[in-house]
Write a protein that binds this DNA or RNA. Structure first.
Lengths: 355, 355
DNA sequence: TTTAGCACTCTAAGTGGTCGAGTGCCAAAA
DNA sequence: TTTTGGCACTCGACCACTTAGAGTGCTAAA
């Protein structure tokens, strides 16, 4: 994928140094100099030798020096190579595993589950956790209810996928009586229970067009109202759950107000984040955007570690952690990976034994 | 209320200086020195004279000097006196009035209304807007619906106050058939429509206790389920809507990470903010907490300007603006005041003509 | 290929000096 | 009695300068 991820041009030794340098930088947060690296790297080499190697690494764009006489810092490319080929992940601590299992297994509704997942991601990582709500191509109709409000306004309560409740207010073209509405709801509930919502919409339109005069007024009414009720659902749907943004204020690399402001602004607008998360949904497994790789200015100094989660082996959503580029990938990656598996499992469990 | 709000010990002139000083400090953000004040104050007095007066004001704790040779800055007490007795409010700009009117009049549901109000407050003030949801002693029952989920879990959909939809999942003590649930819902809807929710609860319990054996099984079931469904509502209710927190990052007086962190943490925890807002609900009209007056550390450098809003002349909620102590009170106060009136009117409108 | 040495660069931190804004106080003026 | 001018003083902001230390690249020798 990335152009340097094949280590052909680099000696084993150079890669080893890169690995040690990145690890050291991640843990200390200070540019790493040749002396420190010589000490750390184990091999008995003098700083001078290290300097030569570091010059090579710099030439390839894997590391960079903030200024002439500071040590080196990994670039996004450096992190990329590190993550793709050098990283040794650390297994999750057993108490973390236990907490994740426990907290994710005791949630009643999918919404609560995802909320909890986000919270856990941010608490364990001390960064920000993000979870997209599962997208669902097929939304099944379960139940509908119409309650008249003032004049021609009608409160619609729609239950989909067994247990998801949506409600909205529609403006009907004419006044309907209580009985009309009741009849319409009954008709819809009887006729369409369990069917796919999109199918219902299209067949409603069709039925209405084709057989208008052969149908009873009640059914025509039902169809008309339902059409209004079912159109542009989900436009109000929260696109993702984000938790622990405040944790990001603790990282010195994000400590400038300007930077932080634009980051939080991006969180609020949601749009860019959604786009980014959408790009992850195609990938199975863990996917990472490092710094500028995301393409969004606000995330320049941030990395995003995501994993998609599945229901019935179908990818339906993405979750992950947002933090500074300098994060402990070796801990965050397994955390995100494992959480995604648990969330998938929990959702599966619910959708497989609904009755 | 505050111990110095009677200006007895202070000459007219000293008060005038205080006023000019506060105004100047609010607009410039810099400590105000004697020369600047002499120029600004109109009266033809030399800086030396001003210095004497300022020394008095400082002695009373109304202003303070950040360091030996800076100008003076108002203290919380100084702001208090300024606001209570010296402030000349500026009327809202007509385009702002128009925008508030328009945006608040075109909201369908109370939730949207309050969301919009919060957004408007923050946008107009360039600070943070906050709105508490209306508390309602009397919640009227409108409609209930039970949908069976897996095993003994039941999805309850409850409509109150004409159009507010709540849903939750309850765990029933035993399995109920679809017909059981339908019957229970029908019974409740028929019997209790329009009644007060708390009354329903108590009468349910009573009925159940007193006349258990004379009632049909269906009704007992209905009561049992309803009891589960109605208990601890509102525990999940969002306590307030907060918008535009990010605006607060632009103020230099809040620019330290530590400060900002604790402020945002308070916003997230909500608890302290709720307490503070609760204290405002008793007051009719505008109420202001300046800096440390709130008693919460996180709000030390902040002021909160609130007004309660009413439905049927009953105070039901509070809204306001949170910003740095150094804010343009003369603009914020009328903004908050007017918004509260509009929100009250809009809610009134809805609750008076619901049918 | 590795290393020691060296000249060089850059930052961080500290020093000292100047400037300007502002103060408090006092004695003279009003 | 109030107001004012004058004066010595304080403090922060700014600038120039220095120093110490870390780290570099390059070269020549091992």
């Amino acid at each position: 994928m990335s152009s340097v991820s094949n280590p052909l041009q680099l000696s084993e030794r150079a890669l080893h140094f890169l690995k040690v340098l990145v690890e050291r930088y991640i843990s200390e947060g200070q540019p790493v100099g040749s002396r420190a690296l010589a000490r750390e790297a184990g091999l008995n080499l003098s700083p001078a030798t290290i300097r030569n190697v570091m010059a090579d690494l710099e030439e390839l764009g894997l590391i960079t020096a903030p200024h002439t006489s500071a040590g080196r810092v990994p670039t996004a490319m450096g992190y990329r190579l590190f993550i793709d080929t050098l990283l040794t992940v650390k297994p999750l601590q057993s108490n973390v595993i236990r907490q994740l299992r426990h907290d994710l297994d005791t949630q009643d509704t999918p919404d609560e589950l995802l909320e909890t997942a986000s919270r856990l991601l941010s608490e364990v990582s001390h960064m920000a956790g993000v979870v997209t709500l599962p997208r669902q191509e097929a939304v099944s109709f379960r139940h509908i209810e119409f309650l008249p409000l003032s004049e021609q306004r009608i409160l619609v309560i729609l239950v989909t996928n067994e247990q998801e409740v949506h409600n909205k207010i529609i403006h009907a073209p004419r006044q309907f009586s209580n009985a009309d509405l009741q009849a319409a709801a009954n008709f819809l509930n009887r006729t369409y229970a369990g069917k796919d919502l999109e199918l219902i919409r299209t067949s409603l339109i069709q039925d209405l067009a084709e057989t208008r005069d052969r149908l009873s007024q009640a059914i025509i009414d039902a169809a008309a109202i339902a059409e209004l009720a079912l159109k542009d659902r989900s436009s109000h749907r929260k696109p993702f759950v984000l938790t622990g943004e405040i944790n990001l204020m603790d990282f010195s690399e994000l400590a400038s107000m300007e930077r932080l402001r634009s980051l939080f602004e991006a969180f609020r607008q949601k749009e860019d984040i959604v786009h980014l998360l959408d790009r992850c949904i195609e990938t199975t497994g863990v996917r990472i955007f490092i710094g500028e790789e995301s393409g969004y200015r606000a995330l320049d100094q941030c990395s995003l570690v995501t994993a998609s989660y599945t229901v019935n082996d179908q990818v339906v959503g993405v979750l992950g952690v947002i933090g500074p580029t300098r994060m402990e990938y070796e801990r965050v990656i397994p955390l995100v990976d494992f959480t995604a598996k648990l969330v998938g499992a929990a959702l599966n469990h619910k959708s497989l034994s609904p009755s």
